[in-house]
Design a binder for these strands. Structure first.
Lengths: 202, 202
DNA sequence: ATCGAGTACTGTACCGTCCAGTTCCACAGT
DNA sequence: ACTGTGGAACTGGACGGTACAGTACTCGAT
């Protein structure tokens, strides 16, 4: 069922995602998108009412992709033995996912336009952020029920966990352009962050 | 030495700061700034070469103001007794300062334009972020020398402290527009964050 | 006579629309 | 299976309208 129309639609979405992530909302022209999608501008406007609508669509689509990625990640079972090692590995994967250049660029994009598109910022916050925290929290709750952790507010614990891990690398990436972290940096953040977390919650 | 010229200069800086913080870089026109400063556009261009230069100047000036505020804050002495209470108060003041709407808007502004002005992002990161962490770290080092904390990497400890405190409220503010936190929220973040920090570092 | 206000102007970028001509696709009849 | 046909979708380019950075020029104030 890849009708021509559907193919074009997808091509436009892909192109728009690329260009918006790269150049920001106002830095992107509809002509740019049409050209990259190898499609006429008329066709773009046939599929999307206007620039704002197109922007909202690609942001939400990308957010959903990220959301499912996090779900998968938090679903990985954690052994009772070697709790610290297992948790460190979870932390490490969190870091990999959330410092991925595309994710960083998406954050940038939403923050930059949170004034113009308040609904979009709120939607991202709820679907891409709070939901991620909630799944992480349910993992912690499980560990707590097994007696491996000592937690009364699982959501708060998830907040602390992610704050310990992400505050530095995410901020660095936000401010210093497309800075790529070395693997060693991320390893270190995962290890030390997990250690502090366990000191408080084991 | 308030020459007429100096006063105009200041008026333009103030107006530009206000408008840029409110509407973002590309959302702000030079006419807006001139009008708010009660000055002709010609005069604006007499004092600042172009829009980019003006933007860079006001960002760096605001960053410096924030930096000195943090210095003051981290310099407050901490009693040996009631460590947790004292640290919680420090945390609370950190939160107040860094969730101030102006600061949040400045962060937004820099992140939004980190691609176009990479130097500015880097400058903010070094002067407004790493420097703040460094002063916090030196406070922790002092406490460690007094035997109140057990720290081997003071800078890392400062990172963890700020991550625990700021991750949630700052993210929320970034994404959900000018959301104001209730005092109670901030109290709670300060208390729980400090508790986790002390569990790991006391 | 110097400085700045006020305003008009230039050049550019870009959103969204329009139109004339072309390609794709589903479905009919053979 | 093969062809023909109608309609929908697409192309490419042009165009109106608007917004805005930066410049030029006139006139009044001090």
């Amino acid at each position: 069922m890849d009708s021509r129309s559907a193919r074009k639609h997808q091509a436009i979405m892909d192109a728009a995602t690329t260009v918006f992530l790269d150049k920001g909302y106002s830095g992107t022209s509809m002509d740019d998108i049409a050209k990259l999608a190898a499609v006429s501008k008329q066709t773009v406007y046939k599929h999307f009412a206007d620039k704002e609508k197109l922007f909202a669509d690609i942001v939400l689509a990308t957010t959903d992709r990220l959301d499912t990625a996090i779900d998968l990640l938090a679903g990985i079972p954690i052994d009772a033995d070697n709790l610290e090692e297992n948790l460190t590995r979870l932390a490490r994967q969190f870091l990999t996912t959330l410092t991925h250049p595309q994710v960083i660029q998406l954050r940038r994009l939403i923050i930059a336009n949170a004034d113009t598109f308040p609904d979009l910022g709120a939607a991202w916050y709820e679907r891409g952020f709070e939901r991620g925290l909630a799944t992480l929290a349910s993992t912690f709750q499980r560990l707590s029920d097994q007696g491996l952790l000592r937690i009364d507010d699982a959501l708060l614990a998830a907040n602390h966990f992610s704050g310990l891990l992400l505050w530095i690398p995410v901020n660095k990436a936000m401010f210093t352009g497309r800075s790529q972290h070395t693997e060693a940096d991320l390893d270190r953040h995962a290890a030390t962050g997990t250690r502090v977390f366990l000191a408080a919650y084991r």
